[in-house]
Write a protein that binds this DNA or RNA. Structure first.
Length: 273
DNA sequence: GCCCAGGAGTGCA
DNA sequence: TGCACTCATGGG
């Protein structure tokens, strides 16, 4: 099954390399993208971006294809902040993904005080160890493990996978999710959702914002990490040092566009745009 | 060998 | 509440 979309506002490289997803790799003419137990081959063909996948309905939602990003780009530029204007223009094909909630929760627990290449490696080893082996377009891949699998693994497994001190966070949080599920979080307003996410082991403000943004579609979230702190100082000439207050400043400024703008700024800064 | 990475938990004032 | 300290690991 196949999805076609205007490539101007769907650039696979920018969607995948901007830091919101950890399971993808170069494949064929583009990339192989893995999410939960599904797989997709995405590439540019002329003026179209093509997604060949096992579950078109899932990936239509996953790639956020119902949303008009030309309006988002326009609003981002209207703030007249040089880095933001440059980034929104250069990365107008960046889209925020709607990813699997549990996968986001575990992935961003792993992400704390860590770097992206190593996060990818850890998640990949966890999937190989506990996920199910599948095939798509002649490629073997592993699904993201269920909470049941994760909870049954024990923290020694996470340690061996390279999680370091985060091993106990994953063991405890997966045990809790197995017991309680997370469906009770699905329809909460953003502030209440964040409050609930903060009660999971290994989840602080920044991780909660990422899970809310990428997993629960809370586009008014603005995760603040070391890169964004740098953006705040250098590009917004801000004087605040407390991350909670910096987050509040950005959310007040950008409202429901916060999540999109955070990604433009984060990616632009990392790419030294 | 040092610094840093999409930070968070803990203890103590 | 605020703040310092600590927590594994590997890439640059």
């Amino acid at each position: 099954m196949r999805i076609d979309y205007d490539a101007e506002y769907f650039n696979p490289e920018h969607v995948l390399e901007c830091g919101q997803i950890f399971r993808f790799y170069p494949f064929g003419k583009g990339y192989m993208v893995l999410s939960a137990d599904k797989a997709c081959h995405v590439y540019v063909d002329g003026a179209k971006t093509v997604a060949e996948c096992d579950d078109p309905d899932y990936f239509y939602e996953f790639f956020d294809l119902a949303r008009d990003y030309s309006e988002i780009v326009k609003r981002a530029k209207s703030h007249n902040i040089p880095l933001l204007t440059r980034s929104a223009e250069a990365y107008k094909g960046l889209r925020l993904l709607n990813q699997n909630k549990e996968e986001m929760l575990y992935s961003f627990i792993i992400s704390q005080n860590n770097n992206i290449p190593r996060i990818k490696g850890i998640i990949s080893r966890i999937c190989e160890g506990l996920g199910e082996k599948r095939e798509f377009m002649g490629e073997t891949y592993f699904t993201f493990p269920t909470s049941e699998k994760l909870a049954g693994a024990g923290k020694e497994f996470f340690k061996a996978a390279g999680c370091g001190y985060r091993d106990s966070f994953l063991a405890e949080t997966s045990a809790r999710v197995l017991k309680e599920g997370i469906t009770h979080l699905e329809n909460l307003p953003a502030d209440e959702l964040k409050k609930q996410l903060l009660t999971y082991k290994g989840v602080g403000a920044k991780v909660a914002d990422c899970v809310a943004l990428f997993g629960f579609g809370k586009r008014g979230s603005f995760p603040v990490d070391t890169w964004i702190e740098q953006v705040y100082k250098e590009d917004f000439h801000g004087a605040l040092t407390d991350r909670a207050k910096i987050t509040e400043y950005f959310c007040q400024t950008f409202g429901e566009d916060s999540g999109y703008i955070q990604q433009y700024l984060f990616y632009g800064k990392r790419q030294n745009l």
